[in-house]
């Protein structure tokens, strides 16, 4: 068998699999977002039914409805949820970057033989249960939690801080959970930088701060970009963190989608929310895809 033949066969199975289990489902989400909600099982009016033949299918087309999208525009709950997600994801991404950058830099500047172990240690939490890492912050942040306990024992505060069940707790949860996603691309970008560039800057009289601002930082921008997208995109649709750490007034779109689906059993609404979220994330997804492609060509 020729190399080309092997390649085609290797590509075929995963491509077919992903078309069936990934691409088609998205078309279904789009389809159900324009269906009518109904009290049935499944809880929406089917759009096409092959058993009805061509005439039946054409009749069904007349039932296409944008009701779910109209609801998104008219009901403040959705607008506030999208804005809430955008705000919290943006704040959390910025904070994650601020924490991860010095951390990744310290790993990249550590002695060469220690770097692999340090990177592994920094990324290892990603392998442990997400749910447990979020849960740990309930233990820490609750009114009668460990942080309040410790601060009060030290006499630093007189009464417990109210962080748990607020937007601040959600931000802490996102920063903590997604930190490894930010550290890894930053480290990759910082580690491959040529040290002689910094030496040249220093030789030419640049202060360490100026060298950082004019050499290190600009060269690491692809890593900053990749890390920020890796945190921002999933954080936008996050459900577990706002549900466990946020308050009842914490509106995030992932949670609203979840409630539409599981509590209200309004599948067309949930599907429309997902399609709009996808459309909002599309620029970020394309930017991420471009970065991946550029990285591969290098």
């Amino acid at each position: 068998m020729s190399g080309g033949g092997m390649r085609r066969i290797a590509a075929l199975a995963p491509t077919v699999w992903l078309v069936v289990f990934f691409l088609v489902p998205f078309l279904l989400v789009a389809k159900i977002s324009v269906s009518t909600a109904a009290l049935a099982q499944p809880p929406y009016t089917p759009l096409f039914d092959l058993s009805e033949g061509v005439a039946g299918a054409l009749a069904r087309l007349g039932e296409l409805t944008l009701a779910a999208y109209r609801a998104i525009l008219e009901d403040d709950l959705y607008l506030l949820s999208y804005l809430g997600s955008l705000r919290l994801a943006a704040i959390a991404t910025a904070l994650t970057l601020l924490i991860a950058y010095p951390f990744a830099l310290a790993i990249a500047r550590a002695p060469r033989n220690r770097r692999p172990a340090l990177v592994m240690l920094a990324v290892a939490p990603f392998w442990t249960s997400f749910l447990i890492r979020v849960y740990a912050w309930i233990l820490l942040l609750k009114e009668e939690g460990l942080i309040n306990h410790a601060l009060m024992a030290l006499g630093l505060i007189g009464e417990p801080l109210h962080v748990f069940a607020t937007d601040a707790a959600v931000v802490v949860g996102v920063v903590y959970s997604y930190l490894p996603f930010m550290v890894l691309p930053l480290y990759a970008a910082l580690e491959q930088q040529d040290a002689s560039l910094r030496e040249a800057a220093a030789d030419l009289g640049a202060t360490p701060w100026r060298t950082f601002r004019r050499v290190t930082l600009p060269l690491s921008l692809p890593g900053v970009m990749a890390g920020s997208l890796l945190v921002f995109i999933p954080a936008m649709g996050e459900f577990v963190i706002p549900d466990l750490l946020g308050g009842s007034e914490t509106l995030m779109i992932g949670r609203t989608l979840w409630n539409d689906f599981f509590s209200n059993r309004d599948w067309p609404a949930a599907s429309a929310v997902a399609i709009v979220l996808l459309a909002l994330l599309l620029p970020a997804l394309i930017a991420y895809e471009r970065l991946q492609l550029r990285g591969r060509e290098r």
Binding site: F22, L23, L229, P234, G237, F239, A274, L277, L285
Partner: peptide, 17 residues
């Protein structure tokens, strides 16, 4: 199709599946 599911929010993937 390989890179998209890595970053897509899980609620969207779950609903689609």
């Amino acid at each position: 199709m390989i890179y998209a599911p890595l970053v897509l929010p899980e609620v969207i993937l779950g609903l689609a599946f």
